[in-house]
Design a protein around this nucleic acid. Sequence first.
DNA 1: AATAAATTTTAGACAAGTCTAAACTTTTTT
DNA 2: AAAAAAGTTTAGACTTGTCTAAAATTTATT
Lengths: 219, 219
Amino acid sequence: MITLTEENYLKAILSVSMITGNKVSTNAIAEAINTTPASVSDMLKKLEEKKLIKYEKYKGVKLSKKGNSLAISIIRKHRLWETFLVKKLKFEWSEVHEIAEQLEHIKSSELIDRIEKYLNYPKFDPHGEPIPSKEGKLPVAKNIALINLQHNDKAKIMGVSLDDKDFLDYLTKLKISIGTELKIIEQIKFDLSMKIEYSGKIEHLSKEISENILVKKLN
Amino acid sequence: MITLTEENYLKAILSVSMITGNKVSTNAIAEAINTTPASVSDMLKKLEEKKLIKYEKYKGVKLSKKGNSLAISIIRKHRLWETFLVKKLKFEWSEVHEIAEQLEHIKSSELIDRIEKYLNYPKFDPHGEPIPSKEGKLPVAKNIALINLQHNDKAKIMGVSLDDKDFLDYLTKLKISIGTELKIIEQIKFDLSMKIEYSGKIEHLSKEISENILVKKLN
DNA sequence: AATAAATTTTAGACAAGTCTAAACTTTTTT
DNA sequence: AAAAAAGTTTAGACTTGTCTAAAATTTATT
């Protein structure tokens, strides 16, 4: 039996390793789940015993096959529940994270499979994040509108959804083109405009611009 | 902050007191949640400190106003989730209890209110149990078909839903009439027939009979 | 009313998960 | 390559919820 706490550790290890690509450090995990490095050390021993991670003292940690597939299944639940909350219950995207953090721990694979069916097998959640399949496979990342990203997200520009001369001229002037990588620095709730950083500079884009730029989310 | 365990104790105290009407004994709680009387004693002290129950050593326990409204809100969540699982996700009634036991502890009143709205404000769950309102009020018990009851349920006969001479004659012969109190002794899955006990005897009713007898569930 | 039986509580122990402070490794700096 | 800094682990303590065994209280029986 795997506990709620263990599930949260696995999820944290997966999400940190997705960002860095490498073995994960004790400190990074502690920061991710807001606890002390000492607590993390304690827990890593337990997870190692349960064969959920590969861990060598002082050397960092990575998920075992078993741990990985468990972590993926939690991500799957999280994203399906978020999709359900937004699509069916009409929550705002920004409200759902905390609730999904709880729902992702509900133990019933039948339940989450039925939610998936009820939502008609979505491939991406409303934020554009890919939803792992029952078998743990991630669909290939889809292009989403820049406006849908959130603070600190990184993305690469893949195209535009508006063929308008003024629009394209303006992008050219800003030196934004296909392949440009960027990061969201700030979002202004009032007018849905955003500040982005790219090629070493910061620009401010209006809603009209960002909703017509297609990007692929990066880790 | 109230823990999951505390919530389960409150729910157990409420459900035992609904059956007996009175103060609840340590042993009864222990039995309800499958633990030892010693553990219950320990927990009662904590709940008393949090003012969730009224407890005197050796004298039994009842819920405080605060504890009662918390327990009711858990029942509300449980029944709304069960309704959701059956009505929307097409689970069988018999499969949903365990999942709802988990879902009832999700902390978000906004979520459960939206589920309620999504289900169009049901007054009773698919089993005929009343769903408490947001304010904690229980709708007046509705008459349900006898066939919908479960093993060990007790009920009082309130009427019939079929005005057929042969049917009514048969009931008369069995000495079943309005006001008769009964208990479900056994349900035969194969043909949906059931054995009931009433007036000190046991009879076997077919599906055709039990689906046309209206009852009010008793505690 | 005294004794027996049943029920309930307390005492002491244990597991999970957390923490602080101290000790130990590894990495970085000089 | 030694010293300093950063990162990690261990030791020991604490909380929550649980348990068994023993003690205390209430209820039932004679």
